[in-house]
Design a binder for these strands. Structure first.
Lengths: 344, 344
DNA sequence: CCAAAACCTGGGAGCGCTCCCAGAACGTTC
DNA sequence: GAACGTTCTGGGAGCGCTCCCAGGTTTTGG
């Protein structure tokens, strides 16, 4: 008996592949084949291995698999720090849920990374260092070169939301253009004559795409698409300020399409403060269909985008590429749908 | 020249530690020591290594480190699937931001895992399999045994929000009791005489702790703490139903403390529908201070909890334990603060 | 009936790192 | 200057797996 001066500390005598092999009466190689679902294993051996695995509660050591094999069994979700503050919480959580849902059952881990100002080089080094098989990037700002850099390094990358500065990198986005156009057409169909819009910041594609869609819808009705106010960011405050601006420029406006529910909340407050009744005096349509849309006063008519589906689709696209599928679509647009409530 | 029939596929001839050693004119061991910040390295050697690292853009292979060393340089954040739907998005995103903030600079990765109904055993196998050094668990439901299981397996674990079924496992939580008590006292100080509360589901500590705090505050003012309605979950709908129930039982109530802003939104709707003016007829105080609190109509007075700080503190506690610090507090309570707006 | 093809199996090198051990270089003290 | 500590350095085993290769066993087909 050796006298352990120190307690053995969190030692974990994990079952190793070799022990499974011994228990199943086969070789390491065969166990490895079973685990990786390779062909050329007799059903008898396969079954014995499966039984040994469950019996021993074996869980393969990822580090060893990564080191020995060529893939990491791991993908990264990169969120730009500022972005996560802005396009914000509900969006992010939804995407995450979708990613996880799609990953369920696959033996692939998700590591989360926030890209900060300074450590971009670190981030790129890490990602390109073979620690992950692919990357999902969301809430990009402006012309962020990150996706391009990653793609050029040969790392499979999928962007969530059309990237402004990354031509050629595959992306998945909601169909912001058509959603916004539908909103504009709906307001027209309601008989509104002076329809304004509050657009998101100019450096984000989501804001620009929704603005374009609105413009198209308005122009098709042979109306002037001149009542445009730009919000500086996706916040209620910014939406409130933009609404005040619009009201000053055109006191007689009778409808407004707001490019994000979160900004619409602010717009609603401004309208209320100016004594405008919604929807009687001014009809309001938002975008996103966050939870807050249904609890706003009055409940907000909005264009619904399925954020969870966005996460799922991004993941599917990435996994398909990792699986070696060819001729994958360079981008994917997810349909939106209108949710009619009270505000319009 | 060998003729490659196949393209070399995403080959990444990463710089290895050995190359850094050669470039710096030292041995592998010395480079390893520098990377891990160990003592007993001459400043000359240390500098040469640092220079070689930056010059070659070297990033150590995590898989190899994990395999060779004893730690994974990686912690997991486990979210229960249902929980993430309920206590929901803003909470989750806030915690995540805190965790990341605290992890910044440390060479520790964050992997995200959602625990689903069926795969609990898989989850435990994975977590206890040495793939991670420690675990952060949030949005636990009822008597979930997960934290206990992990802790018993010797895996450092920290829970976010007081766990109901995991005595002894360290946790970090907002001071729900005192926050709720402050809310009750504030309503009393306003001269309200019939003060009700809407409590969260009975199977979550957060709901019970806030209820206890409210009861204490009310009792201390020698008032009856009998107007309690339980919501079935943290949703506006559930809050609306509970409010209707309270109004039926006591039409003359003049204040209500709602145990979550998200439920308060529903309560506000019900009050409005019943023709009650807020705050004139009924004062309302919420809890959490989500973004929606400030944009509610009327803007909601609420008890603020700092969710990001929660994430940071959990992470700090876990990392401290991993670093071998002793006599760490078994639990940590984060202060709350009241935000006075219009509703009370 | 024998050759070729298909199926199945085990052995063993090596992925890139950490950590232990042995030893060199430098004091410091009697 | 011998004996000791302290600081620094390099060599090499081995972490647990995958993947290649060599070989055995069965099936197929001419």
């Amino acid at each position: 008996m050796t006298d352990a001066v120190e307690p053995p500390k969190a030692r974990r005598p994990n079952t190793r592949l070799e022990e499974v092999a011994r228990a199943a009466g086969v070789s390491k190689s065969t166990v490895s084949r079973v685990i990786n679902g390779e062909p050329y294993v007799s059903s008898k051996a396969r079954e014995a291995v499966h039984q040994a695995i469950t019996q021993l509660g074996y869980s393969p050591n990822q580090a060893a698999r990564t080191l020995a094999g060529s893939r990491a069994n791991c993908i990264a979700l990169v969120v730009s720090e500022q972005g996560s503050r802005v396009l914000a919480d509900p969006f992010f959580a939804g995407v995450l849920r979708g990613v996880n849902a799609e990953l369920a059952g696959k033996r692939v881990q998700l590591v989360l990374m926030m890209s900060k100002e300074g450590d971009e080089q670190d981030l790129v080094n890490y990602l390109c260092g073979g620690h992950v098989d692919g990357v999902l990037v969301i809430s990009l700002h402006g012309q962020d070169p990150l996706p391009r850099t990653l793609a050029d390094a040969g790392l499979p990358t999928v962007v969530g939301g059309r990237p402004l500065g990354a031509g050629g990198v595959p992306y998945v986005d909601s169909d912001n253009f058509n959603g916004a156009m539908e909103a504009a057409r709906y307001l027209v169909s309601l008989g509104r004559r002076r329809i304004a819009t509050i657009a998101g910041p100019r450096d984000m594609a989501v804001g620009m795409d929704r603005l374009s869609g609105w413009k198209r819808g308005i122009s098709q009705a042979r109306m002037d698409a001149d009542l445009v106010a730009y919000a500086t960011d996706f916040t209620p405050e910014s939406g409130a300020a933009a609404m005040a601006d619009l009201l000053r420029r055109e006191p007689a406006l009778d409808a407004v399409f707001v490019g994000a529910d979160i900004m619409a909340l602010g717009a609603l407050q401004t309208l209320h403060a100016h004594g405008k009744k919604v929807p009687d005096d001014v009809a309001v349509v938002g975008f996103d269909d966050l939870m807050i849309a249904s609890t706003a006063v009055p409940p907000l008519t909005t264009i619904r985008q399925d954020v969870e589906q966005l996460g799922r689709t991004m993941t599917w696209r990435l996994m398909a590429e990792l699986a070696g599928e060819e001729n994958l679509p360079p981008f994917l647009l997810l349909p939106t749908s209108m949710v009619t409530r009270v505000s319009a």
